[in-house]
Amino acid sequence: MEVVMAITVGVLYAAGFYMILRRSLVKVIIGLALLSHASNLFLFTVGGLTRNGTPLISESGVMEAEVYADPLPQALILTAIVIGFGVQAFALVLFKRVFQTVKSDDLDELTTTEQAEVTS
C-alpha cells in the first residue's frame, strides 16, 4: 500500500510543481492547492499507515486498537490542513487584488515595478 501511496504523492507533487510553473495566475493558484494536498498526504504516508488503528483509548483506559496509528503525525497534519486553508485563502485574495490592479493574469507582466512600467 505504501508504494501506491508514494506514487500518488509523487503524482500530486509533480502536478503541483507543473502548475506553479505556469504563467497564468489562476493555474498557479490551482498548483498551490495541489501542493498543499500533496504535502498532507506525504506527511500521512511517511508517518506510517495503519488500518483501523484509530488512536483512541477505551473507557477502561487501554488503547482500543492493538496496532494504532501514530497520533503525532496526525496532530501535525491537522494543523497543516487548517494552516493550508489560511495560506490558500491569503494567496487567493492576493492574486485577486493583483489581478484587479494589473488587469492581467499573465505573471510575466508582473516582472517590473510600477515605475519601470511607466518609463517603458
Partner: peptide
Amino acid sequence: AVLGMVMTIVFEL
C-alpha cells in the same frame, strides 16, 4: 478563533 477566522475570510470574499 477558527470560526472567526473563516467567517472573516468568507465575508470579505
